Simulated scan of single mutants.
Amino acid sequence: MIRNVHIEDAQQLVDIYNYYVLNTIVTFDDVPFTNEDFNEKINTISKSFPFIVFEEDDKILGYAYANKWREKPAYKQTVESTVYLHHEAQGKQIGTKLYTELLAELKNQNYHVIVGGLTLPNDASVKLHEKFGFKQVAHFKEVGFKFNKWLDVGFWQLNL
Rank of each mutant, 00 (worst) to 15 (best):
residue 56 E to H: 10
residue 56 E to F: 15
residue 57 D to K: 15
residue 57 D to V: 00
residue 57 D to C: 07
residue 59 K to M: 10
residue 60 I to K: 09
residue 60 I to T: 12
residue 61 L to C: 10
residue 61 L to M: 11
residue 61 L to S: 10
residue 62 G to K: 00
residue 62 G to P: 08
residue 64 A to S: 11
residue 64 A to C: 12
residue 66 A to T: 13
residue 66 A to W: 07
residue 66 A to P: 14
residue 67 N to E: 15
residue 67 N to D: 09
residue 68 K to G: 07
residue 68 K to W: 05
residue 69 W to H: 13
residue 69 W to L: 15
residue 71 E to V: 09
residue 71 E to G: 13
residue 71 E to W: 05
residue 71 E to A: 15
residue 74 A to N: 08
residue 75 Y to A: 07
residue 75 Y to D: 13
residue 76 K to V: 04
residue 77 Q to A: 08
residue 77 Q to D: 13
residue 78 T to N: 04
residue 78 T to S: 10
residue 83 V to K: 05
residue 86 H to D: 15
residue 86 H to L: 05
residue 86 H to A: 14
residue 88 E to V: 06
residue 88 E to R: 12
residue 89 A to W: 14
residue 89 A to I: 04
residue 90 Q to R: 15
residue 90 Q to M: 10
residue 90 Q to N: 13
residue 91 G to Y: 06
residue 93 Q to L: 15
residue 94 I to R: 06
residue 95 G to N: 07
residue 97 K to E: 11
residue 98 L to G: 11
residue 99 Y to R: 04
residue 101 E to Y: 06
residue 101 E to T: 15
residue 102 L to A: 02
residue 102 L to I: 05
residue 104 A to W: 02
residue 106 L to G: 07
residue 107 K to G: 07
residue 108 N to E: 14
residue 108 N to V: 03
residue 108 N to S: 14
residue 109 Q to S: 12
residue 111 Y to N: 06
residue 113 V to R: 02
residue 113 V to S: 05
residue 114 I to L: 10
residue 115 V to F: 05
residue 115 V to D: 05
residue 116 G to V: 01
residue 116 G to N: 12
residue 117 G to I: 10
residue 118 L to M: 09
residue 118 L to V: 12
residue 118 L to Q: 03
residue 119 T to A: 09
residue 119 T to C: 03
residue 119 T to M: 14
residue 119 T to N: 07
residue 120 L to E: 06
residue 120 L to V: 08
residue 121 P to N: 01
residue 121 P to A: 06
residue 122 N to L: 03
residue 123 D to Q: 14
residue 124 A to K: 09
residue 124 A to C: 02
residue 125 S to Q: 02
residue 125 S to E: 04
residue 127 K to P: 05
residue 127 K to I: 01
residue 128 L to R: 03
residue 130 E to I: 00
residue 130 E to G: 13
residue 131 K to V: 02
residue 131 K to W: 11
residue 131 K to M: 09
residue 132 F to C: 02
residue 132 F to G: 03
residue 133 G to D: 03
residue 133 G to C: 09
residue 134 F to V: 00
residue 135 K to T: 00
residue 136 Q to I: 02
residue 138 A to M: 11
residue 138 A to I: 07
residue 139 H to D: 12
residue 139 H to W: 07
residue 139 H to C: 07
residue 140 F to D: 02
residue 140 F to P: 01
residue 142 E to M: 15
residue 143 V to M: 08
residue 144 G to R: 06
residue 144 G to V: 11
residue 144 G to N: 06
residue 145 F to I: 14
residue 145 F to D: 04
residue 145 F to W: 12
residue 147 F to N: 12
residue 150 W to D: 05
residue 151 L to N: 07
residue 151 L to Q: 12
residue 151 L to M: 14
residue 152 D to H: 12
residue 153 V to C: 07
residue 154 G to T: 01
residue 155 F to Q: 13
residue 155 F to P: 09
residue 156 W to S: 04
residue 156 W to N: 03
residue 160 L to P: 06
residue 160 L to Q: 03
